[in-house]
Write a protein that binds this DNA or RNA. Sequence first.
DNA 1: TAGGCCATCTGGTCCT
DNA 2: AGGACCAGATGGCCTA
Length: 246
Amino acid sequence: MNVLPNHMVRAHQDQPLHLCSPDPHLQEFSSWCPPGLGADQGNSLGAMGALIGHERPGKPPMELRRKINSRERKRMQDLNVAMDALREVMVPYASSPSSSSSSQGPHCNQQQLGPQPGRRLSKISTLVLARNYILLLGLSLQEMRRLLGEVSVGVGVNARPVPRLLLAGGWPLFTSPSQLLLSPESLLTSASSSSKCPLLPPGHLEGPMVPVQWGSAGAPGGTLCPCGVCRLPRFSHPSPGPRFPK
DNA sequence: TAGGCCATCTGGTCCT
DNA sequence: AGGACCAGATGGCCTA
């Protein structure tokens, strides 16, 4: 019985766990194989077995296939490293891991979004929270600029008052770190429940309020508070654009 | 036991 | 041709 949390197990098994073939052509995998794990623990072993037994015409030779697999594995591991780096900079998550979201809206797809104590954020949660984080940072910047603009009005050139917000410390829009752990739905439904967006000062909105659909993975569409956050355009790519140059 | 999450393999496509 | 990227399939582990 493994008493370690899943993510801890994973952390110890960053190297491939599953494919541990005794086949001499797969020494690459065997070198990663923890002791005690047999050859039949792996994924896609049927396919591998087919490859091992007889190379079918039209398929890449074993050596090439191994190379491709290795590259793909490396690519996914790099992706995981980047994902971990993203988790690390998710300040609220890092500082208050137990602050799970308690105000989840009806359209909220965050049964897994609220990080549970001791558990690593899932990939999808990391991405969604990172998006919220970016949105909030942008709003904070926007609000800070607005306030600085207000302060500077009517002030002489030589007089340089320090904005109260800076003296008070913190960002004006971060009422609490756990705010970032809410999904956009939560942020916005809590806003609509109080008839105003908590992220934005009164009178911030201009223009018609257009219901928008939140497009997070798996989340059914719903009408959301049309504040500045949710009015941000969704990033939908029906047809993939050109890739970044390598 | 079902569902969520994950790692890996694999074949296809696009790009250099 | 080879590498990068992507999505589907598969199976393991964990939790509710």
